[in-house]
Design a protein around this nucleic acid. Sequence first.
DNA 1: GTAATATGTTCTAAACAACAACAAATCATC
DNA 2: GATGATTTGTTGTTGTTTAGAACATATTAC
Lengths: 397, 397
Amino acid sequence: MSIPTAPDGRGNSDVRRHNLSLVLRLVHQSRGVPRSALTRSTGLNRSTIAALVGELVERELLVEAEPDASNQVGRPSPLALPGPRPIAFAVNPEIDAITVGVVGLGATVLRRIRHPLAQSPSVSDAVIVTAQLIDQLRGEFGDGHTVLGIGAAIPGLVRAKDGVVRLAPHLHWIDEPFAAELEAATGLPVFAANDANLGTRAESIFGAGRGVADLIYLNGGASGIGGGIISGGRALTGVEGYAGEFGHTVVATAGAVCHCGAVGCLETEVRRDRLVALTGLTDVDSDELEAALLAGDRVDIRTEVLRQTDFLAVALRNAVNILNPSTIILGGFLGSLYAVAPEQLDALVASQPLAASAEAVSVVRSALGVNRLMIGAAELAFASVLEDPSSFVIGET
Amino acid sequence: MSIPTAPDGRGNSDVRRHNLSLVLRLVHQSRGVPRSALTRSTGLNRSTIAALVGELVERELLVEAEPDASNQVGRPSPLALPGPRPIAFAVNPEIDAITVGVVGLGATVLRRIRHPLAQSPSVSDAVIVTAQLIDQLRGEFGDGHTVLGIGAAIPGLVRAKDGVVRLAPHLHWIDEPFAAELEAATGLPVFAANDANLGTRAESIFGAGRGVADLIYLNGGASGIGGGIISGGRALTGVEGYAGEFGHTVVATAGAVCHCGAVGCLETEVRRDRLVALTGLTDVDSDELEAALLAGDRVDIRTEVLRQTDFLAVALRNAVNILNPSTIILGGFLGSLYAVAPEQLDALVASQPLAASAEAVSVVRSALGVNRLMIGAAELAFASVLEDPSSFVIGET
DNA sequence: GTAATATGTTCTAAACAACAACAAATCATC
DNA sequence: GATGATTTGTTGTTGTTTAGAACATATTAC
């Protein structure tokens, strides 16, 4: 009698929307493809692709460029490229800095400003600084661009529907309506999500996870371990947007108490600060830390790396058994851990999960560098246009 | 340049397929709805719904019945009901019996035969017995029905693409092409999947998970603990179909070695046989076990129940942190555990995961009874018709 | 320089849902 | 018990969108 879910019927205009979106996303992801490749990969008719690309060009979402010199028989096909007009701002508030960026379609990071902070910012600090930086950037990118909004990568749990930061432990933010406040301060739509979730999206679309339908991503930062899941080609969010918290899965049932209140979380055992402390360095960046770890003549460092690798393997065993991914992407210092002892982690990942699932999986390091969060965050702002390109109005904002 | 994933463009006929599928699925899930409700929940025009229902009736996938006496103003709307023609067989080979069923649209289990076995069946045993039972049932259901195929619920890991049983530990099956052999023996298409995964689908569509987009299901059986995930409204399979093995997530890092080779798996600590042993009973069924556990005057039983509940909570903590579901469905003896000490599990599930995720989640018992696996398995055979109703040809098979 | 090949372009056809107008069947009211 | 309001089924027409065919164009191969 009662109809449980209420999925939607489709009409002709939905087809159009879907096909426009498809073409735009293909160009976005590939950063430029010949029109002929679009006909092949979509299965749509040449004339249809022409009409779709035509509409997208008219809306300035795409531009067409001279064909590649491709040494192929037949009439050359013009290149469809992401248009320069639509841009998004990205922001990543952290404990020691706020980073803001300008990103175009095709994940082109046009500008990036790191604003160092003397102390961990309160929400209003973060909003004020971000709004200032963005105001400045709007001046630079005012003409010829249309701003789609601001994507925010937050080191914490973010409620998907309204961008409220439920908990960002290291920033000491609890239930802060960051998105709403930044929206009020800038007049731009703000979309916020967990940083590692956005890293996952970025790696999935543009990085080490391109074309992989089932992957998990784990990122090790100074403040803990986050992650994200792509399953069946779709980003997994969970009901409120908190999915992917691999950092708080159990790896030591008799371990230490985590700041989350539970015992033996991955991020209490696998920690960047322990590695940094062993190197004797202070204030290292990722590359320096990795170089120090790879130096390789220190038994105590190697022991700690192996210890942490073992714990990481426990978390991965759970994740592989639950999610059966084909790829595990490691970012941040987890990538460095893997770089030091790949054979160890590979062996554990191959042997600890159920054999059938273990066979299918391979571990790789993340492919995107410092711009990963900018790209992922911008993706949030691009999402609505990528889903419905005809909603894009040139003049707006 | 290279296009990573190759999603498909849509044409007009895809709209038709989608809408036919949508209407059929709504009727299937709800086991009968007024046509007017279909217009409302799909958002499609009355005339469109009329055409869609008309085509489905013509194909004998639906039938229309006299309107309900509904005491509502306006012209009564005829009831769209699942048609009796399409049926699927379901099979569930187990260590002590093979169960075969006949299932119609709307999850109506028309017939169910449990064939007891003296000993755990080999694959060829299972194929022979199943083929015999299905042959018999084909006689009974020959006229007026069209058989869509056989769905198999396997207590083990099943490769999705070809139905090879990679590992069914309790049956001692390893890399057995069960689906292919049963196909050869019966001449019917066979679709096989993990039993708990099919239980998840059944509960999601027809049971305790109706209308819930993000849920996890854990089932406790005599042979171990299985599970499944629905995320964003979609069943999560992983790359090969092995997703959902919550039974092999770590709950005791210094625990016993599991038959899977790893240490401290959920299913080594949370075991039906320990509970059965404490009751002193032999050969109990689920209801008897639950009654014995609920009797409540035995301290040793309660202690063991609480011990197992604590371990179950650890697994759920991981699952909630990773997947952020809104509902946890417990089936089999896990449901009985919950029945004995609901306050204990509720408290742990509310306190152990990250607070934001814990808030959103509630624990419930499974709603479907002994027919759960029959319904889930049949769903596999129905899948292709539910996705593309116009592929259904009345005469076939 | 000509043929082969692949692709863009244009015009027409087919599929489909939306819409409007009307008919039918129920309930509410007097 | 008749009349009006309301909801829904039915029918014929319209608009949107992709598919397809025919032709034009630009490249390579020989």
